[in-house]
């Protein structure tokens, strides 16, 4: 574990990604103290509407005259809530399904995998739009739509990894020893594939944030005046290109966070990928 962290620390791109994520988390936690106009999430000052970045409003104001910088900070909270909850639910659904389907062979596991294939066959964003549209715009429904469309990724991954690791002698030996299937799955197989799950989750976090922003952009996210980043960009369309800051800064925020997760995910994969790790062990 320490070796993994040390190797990760040497990876500059991954560290940059980690820094961006830490920045996001800090922004979300300390939003009330960091923001210059904490009340602007709900309040508006029509006199200052659409003013460009300056000493009073660092990143300019939106169509209601609210401070974009402050709204971005509070938007980070929504982004984190949506991404973390949706991914957690997707992992909680997907990992057990993949484990069980991969461990047992037969009609049941085929059925589970075919169901997840059906979900994967429909483009994620289309399915999420359909679900969010049907249920109405709210944070809960965005989370529901995202987790319902993302769990098959983990089910697929865990299924494939379980299938391959099930033939390892140590798993077979545990079975021969008389361990119950649950014990084998949870105590032997799951720890061995945890690194793949961690990598997939990190990279998936970026994708989820992007999809959540897309849903917000399409008006399917939390309703106004929620400072959701995607919605902010959607609002700005009428005022482009004149009020460039209106779209540019939320876009930059989304870009940096997604890139942060992707860079960290790539770095983690390089360090944790079983194949690469095995090659590394032979070398030493």
């Amino acid at each position: 574990m320490r070796r993994v962290l040390r190797k990760l620390a040497e990876d500059r791109a991954a560290m940059l990604g980690l820094a961006l994520i830490v920045l996001l988390v800090l922004a979300a936690i300390f939003a009330p103290w960091l923001s210059t106009h904490p009340g602007d999430v709900a309040e508006f000052h029509t006199a200052r509407r659409l003013s460009p970045p300056g000493p009073e409003n660092w990143l300019g104001t939106d169509r209601m005259g609210s401070d974009i910088y402050s709204r971005l900070l509070f938007g980070a909270r929504i982004t984190i809530t949506i991404a973390v909850t949706a991914i957690t639910i997707a992992v909680i659904i997907g990992v057990p399904i993949g484990l069980v389907a991969g461990y047992y062979e037969g009609l049941g596991s085929d059925l589970l995998m075919r169901v997840s294939d059906i979900f994967l066959a429909v483009p994620q964003i289309v399915l999420a739009i359909a679900i969010a549209q049907t249920l109405g715009p709210s944070i809960e429904n965005v989370i529901l739509a995202l987790s319902a469309t993302y769990w098959p990724f983990w089910a697929r991954l865990v299924y494939a990894e379980t299938r391959s690791i099930k033939n390892e002698p140590f798993v077979e030996a545990a079975i021969a020893l008389g361990c119950s299937p649950l014990r084998v799955m949870v105590l032997h197989i799951l720890p061995s594939i945890s690194s793949s799950i961690i990598v997939r989750t990190t990279i998936g976090m970026g994708g989820t944030i992007l999809t959540a922003a897309t849903l917000g952009f399409l008006g399917l996210g939390p309703p106004p005046p929620t400072p959701e980043w995607g919605r902010t960009i959607a609002e700005s369309r009428e005022f482009l290109p004149m009020a460039w800051w209106y779209a540019a800064f939320p876009g930059l925020a989304i870009f940096m966070v997604v890139m942060g997760f992707n860079l960290l995910g790539d770095g983690l994969r390089d360090v944790l990928d079983p194949r690469l790790r095995r090659a590394g062990q032979h070398g030493k």
Binding site: P169, F170, A173, A176, G178, S180, P181, P191, S192
Partner: peptide, 26 residues
Amino acid sequence: KPHQSRRFREHLQYCYQDPGASLDPR
């Protein structure tokens, strides 16, 4: 299956060609 016959098979054990490979690396 082994876990079903756990009581009976407690005293029957299988040793792999390479018993080391039967250890969970983690």
